[in-house]
């Protein structure tokens, strides 16, 4: 009896250790994923043969900070999508905790705003956990290096959440522009303000 309790405790510890991992930072190798987009298609980064990298942004329907950044996310895709760095937006919010972030609501929003970037549903929240995302919007700039995805930048889009015109540090755009020139990304990471991810209640 005692032995079996001990064994299950050890098993639990192993399970916890495999789930918990360090949040991605610049220099790490990012994992690919396979998530449903708002058109019902399963999307992986490996499908983008022409991409040089990606602007992965943890995103959602309901967060006021996302709303402030929405046009900037649209603009990032418009500017860099055709240059090989498409925006890949991922909604990790649990629909029970935040009904406005359900798959159906994502579809409605993407349609009404005519999103040209991929908007994916991380229903299991595994991708957000793996990347170490904590809030929305939370950006990971990735570059293709050999067969791998290298994390180049983690954090905020720019340094003024309220007013795009007043921002004077454009972290994501600067990072991608440097990568397009084959140069080093100037800022490896920032702390991004945003709404806490609505994790599933256990």
């Amino acid at each position: 009896m005692k032995k079996s309790i001990l064994l299950s405790a050890a098993g639990l510890l192993v399970a916890l250790l495999t789930v918990a991992n360090e949040p991605y930072k610049a220099g790490d190798t990012a994992a690919d994923f396979n998530l449903r987009n708002v058109e019902g298609k399963m999307i992986s980064l490996s499908q983008f043969n022409d991409a040089k990298g990606f602007i992965v942004v943890f995103y959602c329907n309901t967060c006021p900070v996302v709303h402030k950044y929405e046009q900037r996310v649209i603009d990032l895709h418009r500017e860099f999508g055709s240059k090989g760095f498409p925006v890949i937006a991922i909604n990790p919010n649990d629909r029970n905790v935040s009904p406005g972030d359900s798959y159906e609501e994502m579809q409605k929003l993407a349609k009404s705003k005519n999103y040209q970037f991929q908007y994916l549903y991380d229903e299991s929240q595994e991708v957000a956990r793996k990347y170490g995302a904590t809030n929305t919007p939370h950006v990971y700039v990735l570059s293709k290096k050999g067969g791998n995805l290298k994390v180049e930048y983690v954090g905020a889009i720019d340094n003024n959440a309220d007013d795009a015109a007043a921002a004077d540090k454009h972290y994501v755009a600067d990072a991608v522009n440097k990568l397009l020139k084959g140069e080093q990304v100037p800022v490896a990471g920032t702390k991004a303000i945003g709404c806490t991810i609505k994790w599933k209640k256990v």
């Binding site: 949040p23 905020a156 340094n159 702390k191 991004a192």
Partner: peptide, 15 residues
Amino acid sequence: YNLWIEKVDPSWQGN
């Protein structure tokens, strides 16, 4: 925000 999030607490990711 990047200027002061860490000053409130180093563990804070900004959420």
